[in-house]
Design a protein around this nucleic acid. Structure first.
Lengths: 218, 218
DNA sequence: TGATATATTAGACCGAGCGTTTATAAATGT
DNA sequence: ACATTTATAAACGCTCGGTCTAATATATCA
């Protein structure tokens, strides 16, 4: 960002109707798009659903994005970045043990779903369910995002093994994989039943499955 | 159904183009609709996708069904009935122990997903993901179907507890609930990654979480 | 045999909605 | 005044779910 200019100079060209500049309008589109796509997915979302809600004309949309698909891809990347930061904050919280970090993440997720009245899910899971309508690049992108999340949790579980919260021979990558597999189902059921009970039930199952450190051998 | 007639009598009225009678055409619509909705969901499926694939004219469709939503509701009920029978077959298989019955179901599901080249998921899970676009009755119907599946599995797990495969104090309803919660995520990930690995990974986690009978106490 | 009843089809049509394209408006720079 | 840049308005062509009712193809009746 240009910080040496003392006054913002009015750029050439027609001003935006909403008074924002290019970057601000584009960011607004992405944020609102994220919200709506997380709620209702791609096929059930028309561009007008996004545009009308933030007063951006249809013609403007194509000024910022080549197509609806391009827009969806950008929102997925933005969501991935946001979620990666959230996972890092949780899984690297020095105030909590590794397993308590995971529990805090689950708690935070439950509150998040409740806060949105169980209307929002996980963008990646939602789009994953529409896999038949996605192009190959987006399918691969979703897979890569899940892999990133699994890696982040595997690292956290490795820390748990190192600090005697888990057995030292725990298969952390496999456990992390299984967590995210089941977690997407938990989010789906939470939205369907309008309750965090499925999320908590799944987490309880996950904890039960964790290999704990062995007690002293006789 | 009229069983006293010895021969099917050709009713008055124009015969169907495909040579089938009313019940056959309606059943064909439902079966094909099931296949397509399990593959791509509701919002991404046009009526013509179903109709053209089985050579049934649009006018005919509205002869059998009041609307697209009515059609979807019927396919959901049909799927639920089919799946309930499948669960009963698996969970009441006298040749296997209760836990082996669940393993056989998982195996069968893995083969099913592979057989359809990972294009088909679970109709209930697919529609569950489109919850924002569903009417309330359908949402409740999906919840009821999941409850039925949980009950079926809870009964199987109770049998496992009775036959010493599980601890006698195992919370079978809670375990069954957690299984179906995670299983829907497993199906989603299997379709996304085109692999049964997530299904098997989730099942492995589930088995690890099961409370086993205690060994002799010292 | 012709009239009538019944069941299904034809498949264009409807109005609305969809994503995308094109023409235009509103601004600044020269 | 014209060129260029930036944003928007409107049009475009297509798809969508649903409607319509005459047409059609059969069986039954008188």
């Amino acid at each position: 960002m240009e910080t040496t200019r003392t006054l913002p100079r009015r750029p050439r060209g027609r001003p935006a109707r909403n008074g924002l500049d290019y970057a601000d309008t584009r960011a607004l589109l992405i944020r609102r798009g994220l919200e709506i796509l997380t709620t209702q997915g791609v096929s059930a979302t028309a561009l007008d659903d996004v545009l009308k809600s933030i007063n951006v004309p249809k013609g403007s949309f194509y000024h910022y994005f080549a197509s609806k698909d391009a827009f969806v891809a950008v929102t997925v990347d933005t969501y991935a970045e946001y979620f990666a930061r959230k996972l890092k904050q949780h899984f690297h919280n020095p105030l909590l043990t590794p397993l308590a970090r995971l529990a805090a993440f689950v708690d935070d997720a439950c509150h998040g779903v409740e806060r949105h009245a169980f209307k929002r899910g996980c963008l990646v899971g939602n789009l994953g369910q529409e896999v038949s309508a996605l192009d190959e690049r987006l399918r691969l992108r979703l897979e890569a995002i899940f892999s990133d999340w699994e890696q982040a949790l595997a690292d956290c579980l490795s820390a748990a093994a190192s600090s005697d919260e888990l057995a030292t021979d725990a298969d952390c990558p496999a456990l992390a994989h299984a967590f995210w597999v089941g977690w997407e189902g938990a989010i789906l059921r939470a939205r369907l039943s309008r309750s965090t009970a499925p999320m908590r039930a799944f987490f309880k199952l996950f904890l039960s499955a964790l290999p704990r450190p062995r007690a002293f051998l006789p």
